[in-house]
Nucleic acid binder design. Structure first.
Lengths: 155, 155
DNA sequence: TATTGTTATACTCTATAACTATA
DNA sequence: TATAGTTATAGAGTATAACAATA
């Protein structure tokens, strides 16, 4: 009855699966009262302790004014600290508190569970081959390891 | 200097590449003055001529009130027609005009170019293996062929 | 004068709920 | 009373620009 839908190519399958993966991950971290951009911030602060809000905004492709709001929240929850730099008193150096580091451990566990569930249909060998092909694509598109473009606004 | 970023898994690579693919496709179709949801509508109308706006909204996971706005636009541009159903005068049957069908051909060409460019880094054999693995994943997640979840709001 | 962080504001977008016409 | 389509509206979210402190 229904006319045929043309077979989806790789690019379309990637948008489908990418949205699905992002949505499911967002659901999981919402159990920790976090959004994916906040998770990205915590990871970035852990990787570069003491970085400024401007640098953070630049690295993640977020608006500085947005960073303020998120850091307000994370600081109020005792996960992150702002410290005035002694070298340039304009900048706030960001670091994780011990509690923040513990939460990051939980995030890593959530991410591992997410990965395992999402790839459930593939065996270890297939998963490795898929990973390798996807890495080739990300490299060819110049995508930053560990940072996805979605922290910038999607239109 | 920078602490190590843990290697990204398949799920994260998919969100990265999915966002990238969606963004690039959106850029391409914007040259035709269309958004990705509108492209989805045109494809759905072509596959199910005469369907109602409610059905269209349901199939694409869009709000009916949003469909109104989009159809207003597409109808105003002579791409789609609304016809009152003779069996139930409440419903508007949607069909593509000849111009709409021609635009859909252009969309298909754009999508093909998008596919080719996006997968440029892979040879035909790798592309086929990737496609097969991605299809397995979409099936395992119960994703509808040809419809991506992004027409629903992303939060 | 330029830059960091912050705040305020204007703007867009979304979802929800009313409204009409048909059933 | 219920449904298809439409319109109006309130709420959320985003980007831009103004601002104070510091360089």
């Amino acid at each position: 009855m229904a006319a045929e839908i043309p077979k989806a190519g790789v690019a379309f399958l990637l948008t489908q699966l990418g949205t699905q993966a992002a949505t499911k991950f967002a659901e999981r971290v919402s159990a920790l009262d976090l959004t994916p951009p906040q998770v990205g911030m915590l990871r970035m602060i852990a990787a570069h302790p003491g970085l400024s809000q401007q640098t953070l905004a630049g690295n993640l492709g977020m608006l500085p004014s947005k960073v303020v709001t998120f850091v307000d929240d994370l600081e109020g929850r005792g996960l992150v600290t702002r410290t005035r730099s002694t070298r340039d008193r304009r900048v706030h150096e960001l670091t994780l508190t011990e509690e923040g580091a513990e939460l990051l451990d939980k995030i890593r566990a959530v991410a591992a569970a997410h990965e395992a569930d999402f790839c459930e249909a593939l065996d270890a060998d297939e998963r490795a081959r898929l990973q390798s092909l996807l890495e080739r694509l990300t490299e060819s598109h110049g995508l930053t390891p560990g940072v996805h473009p979605g922290y910038r606004t999607i239109r």
